[in-house]
Simulated assay, not measured.
Amino acid sequence: MTTEKEGTLHSRILADLERLILSGDWPPGHRLPFEVDLAAQYGCSRMTANKVLTQLARAGLIERRKKSGSFVAQPVAQAAVLEIHDIEAEVRSLNLAYGYRLLKRNILKAAPADLAWPDIAQDAPLADILSLHMAGSRPFCLERRLINLQTVPDAAHQSFEETPSGHWLISQVPWSAAEHRITAVSATAETAELLDVPRGTACLVVERRTWSPDGPVTLVRFIYPGDRHELVARFQPGES
């Protein structure tokens, strides 16, 4: 049976090691003290030290290797299933007035550097659209979208001055597959000016690719001020 003292020591050791790992003081690959060393350092039993290391391993913070010890785990990218949502509906769900501004619309030929978009042939025609979505009087997110005109030729004839390209695509083009990628960036001078935030502000980037049975449809990047947006994923238990 675990004594009250052992339980308190367990919580203290766990908190100390979590802080060292999450703060970066112990970077990925750093070897943790052995059980016997932790026990001596904290004046606890080896069993308590083992339980702490086991809990850290279950949380994915460390990797335990036989005969080698325990090491801080390398970060693992997390994936989430997100809906193809309408930004206007998202803004209105916050009880704010929605606004939209088209900033740029060009027709160009795909180049290798076009956001590393796979499945697109070089020199394929693309609609390149930059727009700003507003929530009340404040910018909500900056959108840069490429539309594959080989799959969606009608987009070449749309001005998108009144109707956002995303809203038009949802209503006109059925999609069969989607991929999301979520990253964080610091706002460049141009992005900061458009989003009305200081340069270097932490921003959330949601990048989405969609396909239809006819081929790639669109690649879009949404840039949100980090303190104005969050992502929520709902899931249910199921079979692996």
Rank of each mutant, 00 (worst) to 15 (best):
residue 6 E to N: 12
residue 9 L to W: 05
residue 11 S to Q: 09
residue 11 S to N: 12
residue 12 R to M: 11
residue 13 I to F: 08
residue 13 I to Y: 07
residue 18 E to P: 10
residue 24 G to K: 02
residue 27 P to V: 07
residue 30 H to V: 01
residue 38 L to K: 05
residue 42 Y to F: 12
residue 43 G to S: 03
residue 44 C to I: 11
residue 47 M to D: 10
residue 51 K to H: 12
residue 52 V to I: 01
residue 52 V to S: 01
residue 52 V to M: 01
residue 60 G to Q: 04
residue 66 K to C: 08
residue 71 F to M: 07
residue 73 A to K: 06
residue 78 Q to Y: 14
residue 79 A to E: 10
residue 81 V to N: 15
residue 89 A to T: 13
residue 92 R to I: 04
residue 94 L to V: 05
residue 99 G to E: 01
residue 108 L to N: 08
residue 109 K to V: 09
residue 122 Q to C: 14
residue 125 P to L: 02
residue 140 F to W: 05
residue 142 L to C: 10
residue 144 R to K: 11
residue 144 R to T: 10
residue 148 N to S: 00
residue 148 N to I: 00
residue 149 L to A: 06
residue 154 D to F: 15
residue 154 D to I: 15
residue 160 F to R: 12
residue 161 E to A: 03
residue 164 P to G: 14
residue 164 P to S: 14
residue 165 S to L: 03
residue 168 W to F: 13
residue 169 L to G: 03
residue 170 I to G: 14
residue 173 V to G: 01
residue 174 P to W: 04
residue 177 A to R: 13
residue 179 E to S: 08
residue 181 R to I: 04
residue 197 V to N: 00
residue 199 R to C: 00
residue 201 T to W: 01
residue 204 L to P: 01
residue 206 V to Q: 07
residue 208 R to M: 11
residue 209 R to G: 09
residue 211 W to G: 02
residue 227 D to W: 00
residue 227 D to A: 01
residue 228 R to A: 03
residue 230 E to N: 13
residue 230 E to T: 14
residue 231 L to V: 10
residue 233 A to S: 12
